[in-house]
Design a binder for these strands. Structure first.
Lengths: 151, 151
DNA sequence: ATACGTGCAAAGCCTTTGCAGGTGA
DNA sequence: TCACCTGCAAAGGCTTTGCACGTAT
């Protein structure tokens, strides 16, 4: 897994140690490139392989990995932070999200039609964009089929 | 103020009473159409005119107004909810935000280039968008001037 | 030896809820 | 009366911090 060694290198550069707990957490995210896990979910998943890991360690590791730009923190307006792996750290522009209002599932899409908008904003308002975040809220295919589009 | 009576009507329709506390909160938002206030900020501002209002009342009022679609709740990844008035309730498509990473100021812009993207997402992925939310993170004009664009 | 990492428990925020006491319809 | 509303205090969730005990360098 090519990504793994690059993450390890980042740890070293920050003089961070690669403990079993941290390794498990990192692998968790690398194995699930499209997922957005909460701290609680990470804790549950890691516990399968490392019984005694504490929530504090999970939070501290997630914080550290976010600082190192290995993870990215996201909020979906449900009051808890979620994390996803940042596969293209060098690329500040990331993919976007579709949040299903029925089942809560979060899908993603890769699309970048926003450059022109960013240019406009810089010209008109003097705001220099370094990152953007786009979320669509609606109904996913499954829920759409199930209920024909109405709540 | 045209908006005010429309808000009052909504309260009536929901058989909600217009108490002094609620009126002050509503006016607060109507007077600041472009602002995004946290519950704490609303509490402080209302306390100037109504000494004894409690946080619970503020939260309950914000919740109620959000239900009635008078306010909209937003999260800017700082762990607390913010609220802004929803001037065009009938229009599900709202304006967007530019969050300055230096000073934290939030500006807005009105722009809608997303329809084509939404159509694509429906065709390709079966996801029916009912609302979207776009945030730009970057440097605002003032901070850009102050520090020439670097942190 | 020293700096770093861990689990546990406690503490911190922000937010919600229970409750007894009001108040409008 | 009855449903609604309030402030206060307590309780809830999620997250961070203090601490004593390990463990790599």
């Amino acid at each position: 897994m090519a990504q793994l060694s690059s993450v390890y290198r980042r740890l070293e550069e920050g003089s961070k140690r690669l403990t079993p707990q941290r390794e498990l957490i990192i692998k968790l995210f690398l194995e699930r490139p499209g997922q957005h896990l909460s701290a609680e979910e990470v804790h549950q998943l890691v516990k399968n392989e490392f019984r005694d890991i504490g929530m504090a360690t999970v939070y501290r590791t997630l914080e550290m990995l976010t600082q190192l730009d290995v993870l990215q923190q996201i909020h979906f307006n449900d009051g808890r932070a979620r994390y996803e792996i940042n596969l293209e750290t060098t690329n500040v522009h990331r993919h976007h999200h579709m949040v299903c209002l029925r089942c809560g599932r979060v899908e993603e899409f890769q699309e970048d039609l926003l450059e022109q908008l960013e240019d406009r904003v810089l010209k008109d308002r003097g705001f220099r964009v370094v990152d953007h975040e786009l979320k669509f809220y609606g109904t996913c295919r499954q829920c759409e089929r199930k209920q024909g589009g109405r709540s």
